[in-house]
Design a protein around this nucleic acid. Structure first.
Lengths: 185, 185
DNA sequence: GTCTATAGATCGATAGAC
DNA sequence: GTCTATCGATCTATAGAC
């Protein structure tokens, strides 16, 4: 055991960072090779489908992270208010207080959007449904739960963009603070 | 007069559409040539700085559109509530009810972000300031005006992403409806 | 399994005929 | 001023040595 990089899963975090920083098209194979420390041969050994399979693997890992850390709590945590608080904290941590861009959001508007339309759609749809469910269990009627969840996701995505555009991560922090209040009131 | 395409300004709308659809890197010169109907020679005659100058020209035109149609009203319209209503309508129209992506937002998170950081920052900063000013004139205190304006921009950007990701332009429409209410209440 | 070398295509940009 | 032809660089992906 204790191998540094010898399994497919080991390179995915590095892949994710490269795609986040450079986007799908901007992340060239030479750059990926450099940042993962793997030659192109090794990369194609792990991902026979090439760059597209690498990006798909990253999206799958992201979906896994959110499922474990956020969606599952929203669905199964006994106290939905606690689950919502944990969601906001996990989101703050994941996006590094507004310094990290959302790869799924970026893929949603990029020109490569059709390549990843299904996982992108699923990511937001599952999140919206899980959050709306928790809000409903917290006492909201179905209609406003659906609407609040939709607003929440849009607020997270929008404040990430605004924070990045203005060079002010605090915009993201403020949005999360308001979000917590509006979801729990 | 009545020339079809014989001035620099005539090709900018087509350029804007290509950049919106394919992003900066995805918009290749061959594609741009095809969509504008101009050979590369002509393109470089209009834009000696190449693709980067084309994108800058597009950003400048976008800034001009928003300045005329939105920012100016927010600043100078006698009734700030009327200006805000007009803003929401202009935004709905501009983004084609959620079917059109925001190029400035896309440039803010793309890997080319440093290339256009200044105009991107300016676009959002000026908008936020103009909207906050109108809200203040409508009776809000400065602090909540600033915050509301920030929320509004994030909501527009976020709902555009969400609408695109889910394939549901209605998400954007709903966000605008809520926005109008929250800004005028 | 991992590397280097390179194929084959396309990129942004330029040169030169007209 | 607009085109075509083409440059050198870079891209994804593959082949083959080890």
């Amino acid at each position: 055991m204790a191998k540094l990089v010898s399994e497919r899963a080991d390179v995915i975090p590095a892949l994710a960072e490269v795609f986040r920083e450079y986007g799908f098209e901007g992340a060239s194979l030479s750059l990926i090779s450099e940042r993962t420390g793997l030659g192109k041969g090794s990369l194609y050994n792990f991902f026979p489908g090439g760059k597209q399979e690498m990006a798909s693997a990253v999206l799958k890992e992201i979906e896994g992270w959110f499922t474990t850390r956020i969606f599952a709590q929203l669905q199964w945590e006994a106290d939905p208010r606690v689950a919502i608080e944990q969601m906001v904290e996990a989101v703050r941590e994941y996006f590094q207080s507004g310094r990290r861009v959302c790869l799924v959001g970026a893929f949603a508007v990029a020109n490569t959007r059709d390549l990843f339309a299904k996982p992108v759609r699923s990511y937001f749809a599952v999140w919206q449904k899980a959050l709306a469910g928790a809000l409903a269990r917290a006492g909201k009627d179905k209609e406003s739960a659906d609407q609040l969840a939709e607003e929440a996701l849009a607020s997270i995505q929008g404040s990430l963009i605004l924070a990045r555009a203005l060079g002010e991560p605090a915009v993201f922090e403020r949005a999360l603070t308001r979000l917590l209040i509006s979801l729990l009131e």
